[in-house]
Every structure is written in structure tokens, then in C-alpha cells.
């Protein structure tokens, strides 16, 4: 609780927290949607925002507000899958490479570094084309997860490398503690803050990539996400035709999400960094 109170002292944390709560409520509302998001022409087309259709309707005959609730939910699911799965990979790779060292470390870090240097975007385009048939939220999330762990695994590895040299590691070994227990009990608490802040970063990275892939048409356009909404809006040239409510809804929502996640991560990592924390709580 103390931690939360301190965090809320930062206006960036407070704002981003409120925005994320708002977005979470929106995603939750999708369960009460009166319409099936995959069906077209359930409402009149191209209506301006009004009392009946809060954010208007689109050229597919779908209600934009309810469509947006699904889009937010699905984008969050993708980013959560990507974030959580890549965290698991990053922790495993980072801990094993850091603790074992030697050739295991070299091989794992070679794979990681390769992922860092190759242009990932091209790979995603290629993979998305190959996986077209089975593309859904889970496959997209997993695909992003498989390529989004390398940098964070490196961070965790370097942390474990320095923890391994601390005397308390030896104390634990001399107390008869096994390797697995040692890593989980002694090292995990130190890496938790790092894991948490990289999770947020990875999530916003995943949302961004999903939007990019959807705009160039490499996502399953039947599943509403922030990216596919944008794709449809662009496809029907909503800007040209002055249907601003259609294009603006996903743009504003994704902007809000990016800024909120970014501020959240900055604020938390500043809080976790002892040097900046002193500045913040003030002298």
C-alpha cells in the first residue's frame, strides 16, 4: 500500500492509471455488447455520433463504440499473450544463461543477439503471410512473444551474473540449497521490478506491431482489433469521405494506450531506481 501511495504521488502514474482503468472497463463492456462483432449490417451505415450510436456507425454497418470495446479487448489479449509468454522465455533464458555460464550462455545469447540484429519486421511480415490460415489472437500473440524476449533476457542475465558473484549466493550453497531453489528464492525477487517494467514495454510494443501488421492487411480482418479497425476505416477511405468518427476512435484509443503504458513504465522504473526515487520523494 505504501508503494502505491508513493507511486500515486507522480502525476504521470495517476493519469496513466486512470486511463488504463478506463480502457479496462471498456474492454470489459464488450461482454455486454448487443451485437456480434463479426456480423455486418446490424445497424444503419455511416451514422454520425448521436444518442443512439454513441460513436456513430461505420460503412460495414457496425456500431463503432461496441466494435471498439471488442478491439480494445482483443488488442489487450494479444499484448498480454505476447508480454507474458515472452517474459517466461526471457526469465528462463536469462536465468539459465546467467547462472550456468560457459557454453550454455554463449549459445543462448547467440540466439538472443541474432534476434536483436535481424530486422524483425520483415520476419513478421513473412511469418504472418505463411500463417494466414491459422492467424488468430493466440497465434499472433505467440508469434510476437517468440521474437520479443531477447533484450529482456539479456537484462535478466546481466542481473543474475552480478547476483551470482554476491556472497549470499555462496551462503545459500553452503546452506545446502539446490540450484533451482536458489535461483527462484534468491534471484527472482531482485528481477521482479525489471520483469514488471519490461512487461509493460513489451505490451505496448506488441500493440504497435499488431496495428502495423493489420494496416498492411496481414491480420485476420474478421477479428476486431485496434489494427483491423484502422484497416477497415482506411479501406473505406473514411478520411476522404469525412467519416472522422470512424478513423479517430481507434487512433485516439491506441494513442491513449501507448501514452498510458509508456508513462506507467517510466514512472515505475523511476520509482524503482533508488537514485531517482530520492529526487522524487524529495529532500
Amino acid at each position: 500500500m505504501k508503494v502505491l501511495r508513493d507511486l500515486f504521488r507522480d502525476y504521470r502514474f495517476t493519469i496513466s492509471f486512470i486511463v488504463l482503468v478506463f480502457i479496462a472497463i471498456m474492454a470489459f463492456l464488450s461482454f455486454f455488447s448487443p451485437y456480434d462483432p463479426t456480423l455486418w449490417n446490424v445497424v444503419p451505415r455511416d451514422m454520425k455520433p448521436a444518442a443512439e450510436y454513441v460513436l456513430g456507425t461505420d460503412s460495414n454497418g457496425q456500431d463503432i463504440f461496441w466494435q471498439a470495446t471488442f478491439a480494445v479487448r482483443n488488442s489487450l489479449i494479444i499484448s498480454l499473450i505476447s508480454g507474458l509468454v515472452s517474459r517466461v522465455i526471457a526469465i528462463l533464458v536469462g536465468m539459465i544463461a546467467g547462472y550456468k555460464g560457459g557454453n550454455v550462455d554463449r549459445v543462448l545469447m547467440f540466439i538472443g543477439d541474432s534476434l536483436l540484429v535481424i530486422p524483425l519486421f520483415l520476419i513478421f511480415v513473412m511469418l504472418a503471410m505463411m500463417l494466414r490460415e491459422v492467424m488468430n489472437l493466440v497465434t499472433l500473440g505467440l508469434m510476437l512473444a517468440l521474437f520479443g524476449w531477447a533484450w529482456d533476457a539479456r537484462l535478466i542475465r546481466s542481473m543474475v551474473l552480478s547476483l551470482r558473484e554476491r556472497d549470499f549466493t555462496t551462503t545459500a550453497i553452503l546452506s545446502g540449497t539446490g540450484t533451482l531453489k536458489l535461483v527462484l528464492k534468491e534471484y527472482m525477487p531482485f528481477t521482479m521490478p525489471l520483469i514488471f517494467s519490461t512487461l509493460i514495454n513489451n505490451m505496448s510494443w506488441a500493440i504497435g506491431l499488431e496495428i502495423t501488421l493489420a494496416i498492411i492487411g496481414l491480420a485476420n480482418l474478421n477479428i476486431p482489433t485496434l489494427g483491423t479497425m484502422l484497416n477497415w476505416a482506411l479501406f473505406y477511405q473514411s478520411i476522404l469521405l469525412g467519416r472522422w468518427w470512424w478513423i479517430l476512435t481507434p487512433v485516439v484509443l491506441s494513442l491513449l494506450m501507448f501514452i498510458a503504458l509508456y508513462w506507467l513504465s517510466v514512472s515505475i522504473s523511476e520509482y524503482l531506481d533508488p537514485r531517482t526515487r530520492i529526487q522524487r520523494v524529495g529532500a
Binding site: 549470499f168 545459500a172 534468491e186
Partner: peptide
Amino acid sequence: STFNPMRRVDSYFHETVQNF
């Protein structure tokens, strides 16, 4: 640095007794 700052000191004692 002999003891992990995030662990209670007595946990090392209990663990040693258990492990041995």
C-alpha cells in the same frame, strides 16, 4: 552481502537444518 537483503536471516538457519 553474506545474507540476501530480501530474505529474513533466520530462513537461512531453517533451510540449513532442513537440507542437512
